[in-house]
Design a protein around this nucleic acid. Structure first.
Lengths: 140, 140
DNA sequence: TATTGTTATACTCTATAACTATA
DNA sequence: TATAGTTATAGAGTATAACAATA
């Protein structure tokens, strides 16, 4: 059985990402959080009062998709919305949100450490640099 | 604005994969093919007569998802199904399928080359090795 | 019993269009 | 005009359950 995709970095990238995402999803399931919800909570933690549109620009989430995501977090009382101007609301963590995000933060950090440990120490920094080089937006 | 995910390889992996997949999807759109359809066509090209379940195991596509995918390719006369035994059918490329997959093959190879060129030559091989190390299945 | 293939269904992420309200 | 937010909707990938036919 021949695998013609074996040597394609793009395919390896896709499979590695899928594996990593599945592992993280399994761990976040304990908190009933999706990956994107966890990343948004961590961004709010680091930037209290940030707006949905700012989060969207940072994480490349369309505003149309940020709306229901933020609503879910608010419905669970994990975040609070404070009006900034007529259009925007600043998002911050609630007290239960802060408690949850601390556990999430540790879970994510532990998992990222697990991922890094699969790579020889000397290659970790170049690996991250390579990912960022691919990540950078394409010339349209 | 603080990005708390900046240094997480898992997040960089996800974003890099999304970028790479989007670029490939844009190129494959010329052929009205999705990424998974293109990979399946390339696997059939390399393994004429392969069955759906074998493709699924190779590419980690569930059989329930292989069924409609193969049907779409057959409806477009890109593949032909030849009965192997009572349960299985071997998939092979049709004449138009062979013509199309040659163009697909070149498109994918060109794109993979583009991706690799974003990474310093000396790091390309370790980069692929790192991706494979993460890709490898998790201990359950 | 196990495997192959199929159908139906649901979830997550993403993408677009249309809209309101505000700057 | 441009921006922020919302709603509705659709596409793509993935996941599970149930089933028929065959090994």
């Amino acid at each position: 059985m021949i695998d013609p995709l074996q040597d394609y970095p793009g395919y390896a990238l896709r499979r590695a990402s899928a594996t990593a995402m599945a592992g993280l999803a399994k761990r976040l399931d304990l908190f009933s959080l999706r990956s994107t919800e966890a990343t948004v909570l961590m961004v709010i933690e680091a930037n209290p009062g940030i707006t949905q549109s700012e989060i969207g620009r940072l994480l490349d989430i369309a505003s149309a998709n940020m709306a229901p995501l933020a609503s879910r977090l608010q419905d669970r009382d994990l975040i609070v919305r404070v009006r900034v101007d007529g259009r925007s609301q600043g998002l911050s963590l609630s007290a239960p949100g802060r408690r949850l995000v601390q556990r999430v933060h540790k879970t994510v950090a532990d998992y990222e450490k697990e991922l890094l440990e699969k790579i020889p120490a000397a290659q970790r920094s170049p690996f991250l640099a390579a990912l960022r080089a691919i990540w950078a937006p394409e010339p349209s």
